[in-house]
Amino acid sequence: MVTVGRLELGVISVVLVTLIVTSPVVGILDVTERNPTTVGDGTATASVEQFDTDALTIDRGRFGTRVMYLRIPEATVAVTDVRGRPRIVYRIRVPELGVDTTSTELLTGAGATNVRLGPRDRGLDPAVVSDENYHGIVTVRVQSFEQDRTVYETNETIEVDK
């Protein structure tokens, strides 16, 4: 019969054993190596599966914010053949409004996967947004220390909905 007291002792042992096994002094297991957080060498095959260009607009902020917003749709990127630690970079530029913003996703797993990414909607000075529409460029790239390859590029006219 396992008592609750023994269970707690067991938990404490698990915690201590984990600490010892992962200790850099003991050097049995370097757990952080498997979970990199920064880009390195590598490649991947990527293609944009889904990207709703109609959703790329400028409109007025809700909930009493009263600023203007550049609405940036997310993209779904199909990724295969990941080798090393490359990353996907989604970049959108609207030169007339001084917008240049990116969102990145580090690829670590080896298998085929769908990556969903996109920068946050971008707040704009309501006094600056005066035109009917603006010109924007969206690119999606696979980037690593080895290479920087554009897999998607589109020029869009962004309507302003005042």
Partner: peptide, 13 residues
Amino acid sequence: DPGLGEAVQAHAL
């Protein structure tokens, strides 16, 4: 799908 400011102001309301 709000912007950051919109989300915060929704909480505010």
